[in-house]
Amino acid sequence: MPKSVDIENSDESKGKAPLIADGKEKKSGLKKVMGIFDFILRLAAIIAALVAAATMGTSDETVPFFTQFFQVQASYDDLPTFRFFVIAMAVLAGYLVLSLPFSVVTMVRPNIVVLRILLFILDIVVLSLGTASAAAAAAVVYLAHSGNPNTNWQAICQRFGDFCQKVSGAVVSSFVAVVFLMLMVLLSGFIFLKNARK
């Protein structure tokens, strides 16, 4: 009789143990999937930020003014807003490259909360920088395309078509990088919410 009770107890404990392990494995697996998604978003944001910085940094065009002897040049470094844009996108891409190893660590060891919080705070700072530079450059690009009759600012894109096309592409790419950063911040917030509900 005692032997059968021991066997039943051991069967019950054997039955319960896998259920607990399965729950932990599911939570750990979900965190790893989120870590992989975070890593992919970082790579995509790096590419978008580098494309934006390189496109803006190489945007210049020289067109003749009345005759071939007089030429007018438009370059990104003529405007402080575009210079700020190039620097901000380069900083953004540099930060994301440096954050990749930390993202791998949080993917392999998802229970390291301090590192996740540090990445979350720095992601928000870089997101603010990227949004500010992209918005400022977008305002200047809009003026270049449309001008402002109230202040007698002429639209220059009729004359500098290639230049405007390049800076417009750089601004679009920067907003793509900003969207990826926003998704990273939302993902980190979702991970914190999951941890808080434990």
Rank of each mutant, 00 (worst) to 15 (best):
L98T: 11
I117R: 11
V108A: 00
P101E: 08
V97R: 07
D123E: 12
V126F: 13
Y95S: 11
I117E: 13
L127R: 05
L92E: 09
G94T: 08
N148E: 11
L127M: 11
N111F: 05
A137P: 05
F120V: 09
N148V: 13
A132I: 10
N111E: 12
Q154N: 08
T106C: 04
N148R: 14
N150V: 15
L127E: 06
T131I: 06
T151C: 08
N111T: 09
W153P: 03
A90H: 01
A134Y: 00
A93C: 14
S103N: 07
N150P: 10
S103A: 15
L143M: 14
V114N: 12
L127K: 05
A138N: 13
T106H: 01
A136K: 05
V141F: 00
I112S: 01
R116M: 11
I112K: 03
G147L: 03
Y95P: 06
F102H: 02
A135N: 06
G147R: 03
Y142I: 10
I156S: 14
S128T: 13
T151F: 15
V91P: 03
V113H: 12
I121L: 14
L129P: 07
F102G: 03
A155R: 01
V141M: 01
A144L: 11
R109G: 00
V141R: 01
A144H: 06
N150Y: 15
S146G: 04
A135Y: 07
R116V: 10
G94Y: 04
H145R: 02
A139Y: 10
S103W: 03
A144V: 07
A139R: 08
Y142F: 15
P101V: 12
F102K: 02
N148K: 11
A135H: 04
L100Q: 07
D123N: 15
V97S: 07
V104Y: 02
I124N: 09
V91D: 12
V126R: 04
I112Q: 02
